[in-house]
Amino acid sequence: MDRVVGILVVILILLAQDYLSTRKNPYLGGIIPIVYVGVISIFFNRLMDNNDHSSTWVILTVALCGLLSSWISGRERFKKKRQKELDRIELQNL
């Protein structure tokens, strides 16, 4: 049951990140990665208690890269959508 809840939390975080990344304000998409870095810095010693340091670093890095790539792709989608709307408005003005 704990795994299901964990998976649902991860999916919810990714959906929220995708939503915030495609808003007009570009800084909204940076909220979740900044919170992630803050939480990791607070609980860093507890995460490093086990002797498998390399896998912990890999997991932390992959998660941060995933959040940042979601932010970047959301911004690109927003820019394409905005440009498409501007092109449509320009076409109507002609």
Rank of each mutant, 00 (worst) to 15 (best):
M1H: 15
M1K: 13
R3F: 12
R3A: 10
V4E: 14
V4D: 14
V4R: 15
V5T: 12
V5Q: 11
G6T: 09
G6Q: 13
I7R: 09
I7E: 04
L8D: 06
L8N: 11
V9F: 13
V10A: 14
V10G: 09
I11C: 12
L12K: 07
I13F: 07
L15V: 11
L15I: 11
A16M: 12
A16P: 01
D18P: 09
S21K: 02
R23H: 11
K24P: 06
N25L: 14
N25Q: 14
N25H: 14
Y27G: 04
Y27W: 13
L28I: 06
G29Y: 06
G29M: 06
G29C: 03
G30M: 01
G30V: 05
I31S: 05
I31D: 01
I32W: 02
P33W: 03
I34S: 14
Y36R: 01
Y36F: 11
V37P: 05
V37W: 05
V37E: 02
V37H: 00
V37F: 02
V37N: 09
G38Q: 03
G38S: 07
G38C: 06
S41F: 13
I42L: 00
F43W: 08
F43A: 08
F44W: 15
N45H: 13
N45P: 03
R46L: 10
R46A: 12
L47S: 03
M48D: 12
D49I: 10
N51D: 07
H53W: 02
T56D: 04
W57F: 04
V58D: 00
V58A: 01
L60C: 11
T61P: 03
V62C: 06
V62D: 06
V62M: 07
A63H: 04
A63Y: 00
L64Y: 04
C65L: 15
G66H: 02
L68Y: 05
L68N: 00
S69N: 11
S70M: 10
I72F: 10
I72H: 07
I72N: 09
S73M: 10
G74M: 02
G74P: 05
G74K: 05
R75E: 00
R77G: 02
R77H: 08
F78T: 01
F78D: 05
K79I: 14
K80S: 06
K80N: 01
K80V: 09
R82Y: 08
Q83T: 09
E85M: 04
L86A: 08
D87R: 14
D87G: 04
D87S: 13
I89F: 14
Q92P: 00
Q92C: 05
Q92W: 07
N93T: 15
L94C: 02
